[in-house]
Design a protein around this nucleic acid. Structure first.
Lengths: 142, 142
DNA sequence: TTGTATGCAAATTATTTGCACTCTC
DNA sequence: GAGAGTGCAAATAATTTGCATACAA
């Protein structure tokens, strides 16, 4: 998947009523190039990310997450990682607990499973979102 | 489920080659009473948790997690929560994104699903563990 | 006794906030 | 021009570490 140009990202932002600032476009470009979930300190440490303020990273990515352009994931690394939501779809991850190698997979709980889970509870009538990651040892580390 | 006595917990620890220190027993007792996932700052702030050092909380719970007596969970609260693994079995959670209400459910990926996921990857031959939580708005907050 | 675990204290890492200023729409 | 967004700087929150001492086995 080719990286979207600034114009394309700008449109996506405006469609959602957000201003297309250079900082937000930069955040999207950085995530697009990363090809994997990355933390804010990591993004900021990279050469291209060096110019922006820390607070702008946090506030910007929070905004992009709320706009469903970006997704936060917890890979048990002690911090939040961020990744692009390409085409509005999320995916999940396999994480090697030794070397940190990450792969994606697509599978989400279907309606049947969601019903089965809701049946076990008293206080919920619906489910909006979910987290799902697998952890193991990759071939190289095994 | 009644809380296990100190003797029972002490045996569990020794079975795993760990020393049954008062601090570790206290951690297990605190988690047992909590009945829900709790953070370390929260545990420490509680009256009974006040006596132990911060580092002892972190190191102790890390040890208990490695010993599969305790499990860490990420409920998108910006910190790690801990809960007892009762009978060596884990469960997953539904979390209300408004009030924080939490319920448990039991369901885990079966072998068929695990195979389906592994088939999508190149670098993994097996999966050890997984995280799975649902987020939504509970009845009261809806 | 002996190594493991704890307490203390300080450091590190991640994240958030207030406020003045700037830039997009 | 107006309001949303950013930079700066300082604060808060969570977690980790080194080292001397204490305690379980």
């Amino acid at each position: 998947m080719a990286e979207k140009g600034n114009t394309a990202y700008a449109s996506l932002l405006r469609e959602r009523g957000l201003k297309a600032t250079p900082q937000r476009l930069q955040l999207l470009a950085l995530l697009s190039r990363a090809k994997r979930p990355v933390s804010i300190p990591e993004l900021q440490a990279g050469a291209e990310g060096g110019g922006m303020d820390t607070a702008t990273f946090y506030r910007g990515l929070e905004t992009l997450t709320a706009a469903t352009l970006v997704r936060k994931v917890d890979l048990r690394h002690g911090h939040t990682d961020y990744e692009l939501m390409e085409n509005g779809k999320h995916h999940h991850h396999l994480v090697c607990t030794i070397c940190g190698h990450i792969e994606k997979f697509t599978w989400c709980p279907d309606n049947k499973l969601r019903k089965q889970i809701l049946k076990q509870t008293k206080g919920f009538t619906g489910l909006d979102d979910h987290s799902l990651e697998f952890f193991g040892v990759c071939k190289k580390c095994a």
